[in-house]
Amino acid sequence: VGLSGGERQRVAIGRALLAKPRLLLMDEPLAALDEARKAEILPYIERLRDEAGVPVVYVSHAVAEVARLATTVIVLEAGRVAAAGPAEAILRRSDLVPVHEAEAGALLDMVLAGADPETGLTRLTGTAGQLLVPGLAMRPPGTRLRVRIPARDVLVATERPRGLSARNILSGQVATVTPSGADVAVEIDCNGALVAARVTAAAVRELGLTPGRPVHVIIKSATFDPSGIGTLRPTVEI
């Protein structure tokens, strides 16, 4: 009987674990799989990370995969270490995640609180505030999640907007403003959780976006890809 790409990958991981390794190296393990097979095997890799008790070095160019799985990230450039640190700190930096390859963004630790009866969306709570996202109804309340928000999908307002279709509005204040190519990378501190936004230099001037300025962060519910939201195990390194 033929095996799917995802099944073959699980068999390969199982064979590696039978050798009782002290360290597991996964070099682009999903590169040859289509999106459906990736969605099939990513939860399996999460279980491997959380339950096998084996340190994992996961090598990938796919920022979405790294954001979902990693707790510590090392960025290599021309064979040298360009940066290393917690995933949420490294993946926010637009200088380390080029726009032509992927988009830098925030990683937020959230807890699934339940379904919102008015919208049919799933309600998440965390340090940054509340988020309404689609497609997580099958996960039980109390599940700890890591949610990635690409900087390009974040709008910044100096006044709380009204009459808006976007479901998610977080309050905070500007933490940093850093020129990044033709745009500006802005970090907003939402109760201690940092959200990244990418805006134009003109917007920075017109809105007066300087450190300490109170602002509102606006995120559409449609921004969130359920396949990119992973379970969170903060005490396990990968």
Rank of each mutant, 00 (worst) to 15 (best):
K20F: 12
K20Y: 10
K20D: 14
K20H: 15
K20V: 12
K20T: 15
P21R: 04
P21E: 12
R22Q: 07
R22C: 12
R22G: 15
R22W: 08
R22E: 15
R22F: 12
L23I: 13
L24H: 04
L24C: 14
L24F: 06
L24E: 07
L24G: 00
L24W: 10
L24I: 01
L25R: 10
L25V: 07
L25K: 10
M26D: 02
M26W: 01
M26K: 03
M26R: 11
M26P: 04
D27Y: 06
D27C: 07
E28N: 02
E28A: 12
E28R: 02
E28W: 05
E28K: 03
E28F: 09
E28H: 09
E28M: 11
P29E: 04
P29Y: 07
P29R: 15
P29L: 14
P29A: 00
P29F: 10
L30M: 13
L30C: 05
L30P: 01
L30H: 06
A31T: 10
A31R: 14
A31C: 13
A31H: 11
A31P: 00
A31Q: 01
A31V: 09
A32E: 11
A32D: 05
L33I: 03
L33Q: 04
L33M: 14
L33V: 02
L33W: 08
L33H: 02
D34P: 08
D34K: 11
D34L: 08
D34C: 12
D34W: 13
D34G: 14
D34A: 08
E35H: 14
E35P: 06
E35I: 14
A36S: 15
A36Q: 15
A36P: 12
A36H: 13
A36E: 10
A36Y: 09
A36T: 14
R37E: 05
R37F: 07
R37W: 08
R37N: 06
R37G: 01
K38G: 10
K38C: 06
K38T: 05
A39P: 02
A39C: 04
A39D: 11
A39W: 11
A39S: 15
A39N: 06
A39H: 12
A39L: 06
A39V: 12
A39G: 06
E40D: 14
E40Q: 00
E40G: 00
E40S: 07
I41H: 03
I41G: 00
I41T: 09
I41E: 03
I41C: 04
L42N: 05
L42W: 05
L42T: 07
L42A: 09
P43M: 13
P43V: 13
P43K: 11
P43E: 09
Y44K: 01
Y44M: 15
Y44G: 00
Y44R: 03
Y44P: 07
I45H: 01
I45L: 11
I45G: 00
I45R: 02
I45T: 09
E46A: 09
E46R: 05
E46G: 10
E46C: 09
E46H: 08
E46N: 06
E46M: 08
E46F: 05
E46P: 00
R47P: 06
R47C: 04
L48K: 01
L48A: 01
L48S: 08
L48W: 00
L48I: 07
R49N: 00
R49W: 03
R49A: 07
D50K: 12
D50Q: 02
